[in-house]
Nucleic acid binder design. Structure first.
Lengths: 114, 114
DNA sequence: GAATCATACAACCAATCAGTTGTACGTCAA
DNA sequence: TTGACGTACAACTGATTGGTTGTATGATTC
């Protein structure tokens, strides 16, 4: 059913916005969009345990915002710009809803009959 | 200090992404961007208590995503499209970081000396 | 094969979250 | 002035979060 697809979309949106609603994770995104970094290299940048950073990376990965590639014994993460764009397009959709409202108001002003 | 401004920006980003990381709140945003709605009118649309919806509206308001105007005894909410755009611009910034990476890679390919 | 490095994951904890019910207060209509 | 409506907020609950430490597993190096 279409209903379920929409549900999945909402699940995905929840995951994406939630993943971005943490400053450490946003910072990780900035790094992995600029280049490839192993989890331990990333972890070295933050004042928290390796496990904490690893969990942040896992949250971003589950949301589809980054991918990991094995490289020897390390796992290198790189950001997925398409996922970032998909979040941006959700916001554009919201903006379109607003444009619809404005268009309706403009119509009323243009045709003041009734 | 500049440091504190950045901190405030991060606080704001946290609040914005967190506010949008809930499907009920995203749905409220769709409505209040399309028009003005009283809190109780909004509440009638959802299968949860008035208080729950009122709290969702408060979260969106604190994040700056909507504003309320008194109108008689009701409080009408309408979405702030500028706030939505500010979130979009954060994502554009992320995308710029990625573009920088690609540009650097292209340079390496263009000048294979070294 | 042993030691080491990089990663993943479980178990735990305090804090926050999303929901509930109940209460209080301002505004409007009779 | 009394009641009903619309809103806000406090107090509570179970679930989730972001952090911790400890342990297990894989790949690398000696």
């Amino acid at each position: 059913m279409i209903r379920d697809v929409i549900e999945d979309d909402e699940d995905r949106a929840d995951a994406l916005f939630h993943a971005l609603a943490d400053r450490t994770r946003r910072d990780i995104m900035r790094r992995v969009l600029a280049g490839e970094y192993s989890v331990s290299t990333l972890a070295a940048s933050y004042d928290m345990s390796f496990a904490a950073v690893q969990k942040h990376v896992a949250v971003l990965e589950r949301a589809g915002l980054l991918r990991k590639r094995r490289h020897g014994r390390e796992q290198r993460a790189s950001g997925d710009v398409a996922a970032v764009r998909s979040v941006a397009s959700m916001l554009t959709e919201l903006e379109q809803v607003w444009r619809g409202r404005i268009a309706r108001i403009d119509e009323l002003i243009a045709e003041p009959e009734d």
